[in-house]
Design a protein around this nucleic acid. Sequence first.
DNA 1: CCAAAAGTGTTATCCTTACACCCATGC
DNA 2: GCATGGGTGTAAGGATAACACTTTTGG
Lengths: 246, 246
Amino acid sequence: MVTRTSEPEIRVAVSTVILTLRRARDVDQPSLALPLVLRTRDPHQGDWALPGGWLEPDESLEDAAARTLHETTGLSPSYLEQLYAFGAVDRSPSRVVSIVYWALLRSDEVDAQSAAHVASGLAPENVQWFDAAGLPSLAFDHNQIIDYALWRLRNKVGYSRVAHGFLPPTFTLADLREAYEAILGKRLDPANFRRQVETSAALLPTDEFRTGSHRPARLYRYDDDVELADRGPLAPEKDVKEKRTR
Amino acid sequence: MVTRTSEPEIRVAVSTVILTLRRARDVDQPSLALPLVLRTRDPHQGDWALPGGWLEPDESLEDAAARTLHETTGLSPSYLEQLYAFGAVDRSPSRVVSIVYWALLRSDEVDAQSAAHVASGLAPENVQWFDAAGLPSLAFDHNQIIDYALWRLRNKVGYSRVAHGFLPPTFTLADLREAYEAILGKRLDPANFRRQVETSAALLPTDEFRTGSHRPARLYRYDDDVELADRGPLAPEKDVKEKRTR
DNA sequence: CCAAAAGTGTTATCCTTACACCCATGC
DNA sequence: GCATGGGTGTAAGGATAACACTTTTGG
């Protein structure tokens, strides 16, 4: 067996596709949006790119994703999961292996965290939010990466509760359905949607109702006790900790 | 924005969980097995570990997985897909980010390639095949990694044709069903299984039959023209090339 | 003929889908 | 009242699962 040692010219970076569901003015349907960072140096100077940065020796991949995302955008996601490791030789002039994560965040949290980021005096002028449909040509292979993240989100919304990442602790079934519709890009029957989420038993009804227009709608919350094996043996540590303290 | 540069102490490794379906003596049901390599140095000297090695600067992640797998075991898989990037700080004494792949290979190819590997004079005594059920305690986090690979295989067999990786070009429906049964760990109704794969339209019947015992069984082959979006926008390059030359 | 696997038929059940319909509130 | 979204009912269609049954070979 030949023993080899890695050369230092391979660097490890992390990037994050962080999505939110925002309701544009004069549009009733919310749509997916994500922040991009304007590159201020080569390679790809002047192009938009995913927020990210280099992996530090003393932090895990997920920690690095959360840190670099926060440093560049001020955001702290409500959901964070590894997407894929991209390592083609020619994806960057120097050799970079990028571990990409995807994340979700409520739009009101985006607003609050962005405001706090601006108030802290850091430079936000390099960050801009784009509608996920109709992106410009991005730096590196980031268009392909975002396509893959959106595909994963569309897939996963069917067998997990990732939509939770877009919603406040309590929400109406119409809120949940709107999130599903925006993710899947198609309208869903309200009656059938209600029965499907009810039989899945992942939701708990509360005694509260949202009033303000027409018939009040019951508020629901997610049942944290429901086991869902959407990540298999790679259980997120957060869940484990939550269970321990219960 | 703070600019950081990665320190050279982070190294990138690749490992591969390569599975085969082998029929043990005196057992009618085939079972999943995988090769492990005995570690000859610290850390974890004397423990069994996944085949792998360091990423070289001029090769892609997938190329590195195929190369290190071949160097350590002599095997060339029929199916190869990225599994996950593992990067916990404490998973190794030095900082190593491991990009792990999972792969499939027919047992007769395993035998042929292993024999060729031995004949070429390389050291095979460090490699041993283990039944996927009932592994010993392995080096690093490799037990967890294998659990995740098996989970992915069980999931993916339902909506893709990964089972193809265990089968020769033509095969009977009983062959295919045996592969599914071994992967899923449960018996399947032959009648219903037949109808499911027939309606999925991923199989083409041939004019040949396998004889030798009882009623001859028709041989089928996979229909390469069937599109399956099991990897989303990350289409393997092999498929693209095949389409171009068609 | 007999055993056993290949292959077909049938039925119950569940899930999905489409859509009619009633309910409760703001205006 | 009436428009509108919240919520229930219902029936058709398809997928699944269980299992009886027929076919075709080797011995």
